[in-house]
Amino acid sequence: MSVPLLQAEGLNLRFGTTTALDDVGLNLHPGEVVAIVGESGSGKSTLLRVLSGQLAPADGSVLYRDADGRSHPVHAMSEAALRRLMRTEWGFVHQSARDGLRMGVSAGGNVGERLMAVGARNYGGIRAQAAEWLRRVEIDDARIDDLPRVFSGGMQQRLQIARVLVSRPRLVLMDEPTGGLDVSVQAKLLDLIRNLVADLGIAVLLVTHDIAAARLLAHRILVMRHGRVVEQGLTDRVLDDPQHPYTQLLVSSVLAA
């Protein structure tokens, strides 16, 4: 097994009397997709915010190993360094595409900005890559100069994915990427994400309440309840033979739906 790309240990966090994270740890390896699942209030989105440096834990550590093998304590990084990391080696796909796009900038401009953040300067080359990525996420490249606000919700989410993946980040964090979309749109988007992630070989942390999405995308799965990881392991093993009563309840509720 390779050295972990992201490593978290002993994460604890409380909001008043509510336990948000209780001794949570995880490892994410290069090219691996790990899903964090659980109901609303389970702590999964809080965990993602802590892992991405947006929120500091009361205890514990998060280490990121860069492309040169150097280890960086995420919560010791300056805001500027963390922003630079998020523009280059990391990416974040928001549940609402509007949080991940610049709505007053063209579709091509949204993709091109990310390329410029990693050093691209040739306008023709940037525009050509933007057009290619629009096609890769199944948006007609004739719409390269359209503003995202005239796109459907599904198209906006695909544009956000193109913006994040164009620079080939090593790690992408996804927060309910299919939330709020119609079921038919969700299925096509999940298929698109699966193919792109496999093609690029990137590592993904996926937060979702959707067991079907976790099964389709993830190599491993962590099940959270009340701020604790109650079960984890290979996705098929956990979902086909759940050991914890809460995981059994989650799986059975999906099967009964």
Rank of each mutant, 00 (worst) to 15 (best):
G53T: 12
L250Q: 07
L181G: 12
Q95H: 01
S52E: 06
D146L: 13
S40H: 07
V207T: 03
T178L: 04
G25V: 02
L222K: 01
M1N: 04
R228H: 04
G53D: 08
A128W: 09
L5H: 01
L217W: 03
D66P: 02
F15W: 13
A67P: 04
G69N: 10
E176S: 03
E32S: 11
V183T: 13
A218S: 02
A142H: 12
E113D: 15
V254C: 09
Q156W: 04
L205N: 07
G60K: 08
D191I: 06
G227M: 03
D59L: 03
G108C: 12
P57R: 00
R149H: 15
F15R: 14
P4L: 13
G153F: 11
V204H: 05
T19V: 10
I202P: 08
A128P: 11
P148A: 10
V93Q: 08
L249K: 11
V33E: 01
V238H: 04
R121F: 14
L28G: 02
S61I: 07
S96H: 12
A198G: 05
L222V: 00
I221Q: 01
Q7P: 03
S52T: 08
R135W: 15
H226W: 00
V33Q: 04
M1S: 15
P30Y: 00
H29L: 07
R49W: 00
T18Y: 00
Q156L: 10
E79F: 07
Y123F: 13
L13Y: 01
L249W: 06
A56Q: 13
L115V: 10
